[in-house]
Simulated scan of single mutants.
Amino acid sequence: MLGTTIIQTGTEPTGRLLSDLSWKAVQSCACSDGLHYVLTSTFGRFRLWRSNLAAGLSPAFLIPDDALASLRSEALYRLQLACAGQRAAFQTSNFSPSEYQRRRLANMLAMLDAREAGATIRELAFTLVYPNSRLLRGAEWKASGEKRHVLRLLRAALKLRDGGYRGFPGFDRSI
Rank of each mutant, 00 (worst) to 15 (best):
A106P: 00
L68S: 09
R45P: 00
L158A: 11
A60S: 13
R148I: 02
L153M: 15
Q86E: 15
L62R: 05
A114R: 03
Y100C: 04
R148C: 05
N132D: 15
L112S: 01
K147H: 09
R155A: 15
L81C: 14
H149W: 06
N94G: 15
L158Q: 12
A119S: 09
A139Y: 02
S96V: 13
F168H: 09
D113K: 12
S133M: 12
T92C: 13
A156G: 09
D66W: 10
A54D: 08
L57E: 13
L76R: 03
S93P: 05
A67T: 03
L136E: 08
L62Y: 10
N94V: 07
L68Q: 13
G138Q: 05
Y130K: 02
P59E: 06
L53E: 11
R103E: 10
F126G: 01
W141H: 04
A157S: 07
M111Y: 01
A156W: 07
R103I: 08
L160Q: 06
N107P: 00
K147A: 06
A67S: 08
Q101S: 15
L135V: 04
G56I: 01
P97H: 12
L71N: 04
G167W: 08
E99C: 08
Q80F: 09
R72L: 10
L79I: 03
R166L: 15
G85V: 06
A143L: 10
E99S: 14
P97S: 13
E74S: 14
E146I: 00
L76V: 10
R134F: 07
S73Q: 14
R115F: 11
A55E: 14
R134Y: 06
W141F: 05
T127Q: 07
Q80P: 04
L48W: 02
S144Y: 02
A106E: 04
A143R: 11
G163C: 09
A88I: 04
R134Q: 12
S58C: 10
D172H: 10
L53V: 02
S70I: 02
